[in-house]
Design a protein around this nucleic acid. Structure first.
Lengths: 148, 148
DNA sequence: GCTTGACCTTCCCATGGTTGGAACCTGCAT
DNA sequence: ATGCAGGTTCCAACCATGGGAAGGTCAAGC
């Protein structure tokens, strides 16, 4: 099977398959007489494995570990579980960080009139942070009010 | 004020200040006789503005727009609000995506015994996705059960 | 004056995962 | 034979950031 077929069958682009081979994530593919890479069903299986791991947000380094565990028939599921849990914690950290950004920004947006006047709490906040997390004003961010 | 002081005062590293200048996000700094960059309090103000925008997850391109709006005294707050709202949507998309990953993975982790045996629903899932989103099995992912 | 250490300058390189393109070769169908 | 689709390698770019080398400058202490 050519790299194009393998790409279509696995959901990983031909470009990335070559890249994974180059960086050692996957072993070097066999080559036919023409020099074209040749992939077996087993290879595609591995590529699909990689694809699903990427879909779950694992880094290439983590996928490397997962592949080793996958190949290791005497693996301990505890090792897999630890890896996954660490990754979940990683994801949660990123989520928390992004959510904080979104929340802060949403507060500002809620206070912004959004009209043709220049006064804007969003700009004001960026200009001079009021550290609302320490002492949140009850009335609203930066004291701005919507146009009545 | 030297770049080091400006960096400390703004929270942006000297490296990044030079980078922002090079890429045109900020104007070229004045230079003293020695060739050292010289920053005014106003410059630091702008750098802090940038820093806060980055803390809210805005990209450099978006910060460029924000800076233009900041400098524009006849800006329309509606423009700022739109920019911020688009960014919030962007953040929410990323959050949703990450949360889905975390949820899926958490389900798998919950089903994994995490002991010294090789059987592992996480590996099994990666090996052959069961597309649980389409028809979620009530009993558990991949039918794995914890060791009783 | 001279040394020392901290700071500045520019320039290049690396990260991670992915995509794009150029230049060239092969396989297959007409 | 001709053309096109798809393979090959290599090089570059993205974004934001950090690291480091090689060399110039400032300020303090002797």
């Amino acid at each position: 099977m050519n790299i194009g077929k393998a790409a279509a069958a696995s959901g990983i682009s031909a470009k990335m398959i070559r890249y994974y081979e180059q960086t050692g994530l996957i072993p070097k593919a066999d080559r036919g007489d023409s020099g074209y890479r040749d992939y077996s069903a087993r290879d595609v299986h591995m590529l699909r494995f990689i694809r699903r791991a990427r879909d779950l947000g694992f880094s290439v380094a983590e996928i490397n570990e997962l592949l080793n565990l996958w190949r290791d028939r005497s693996r301990h599921s505890g090792d897999v579980k630890r890896l996954a849990q660490t990754h979940i914690e990683n994801l949660q950290e990123r989520i928390t960080s992004l959510q904080q950004m979104a929340d802060t920004l949403q507060q500002l947006v809620d206070c912004c009139a959004g009209d043709d006047r220049p006064d804007c709490p969003i700009i004001a906040e960026l200009e001079e942070a009021t550290d609302r997390s320490a002492s949140p004003p009850a009335v609203g961010v930066s004291g701005f009010r919507q146009r009545p």
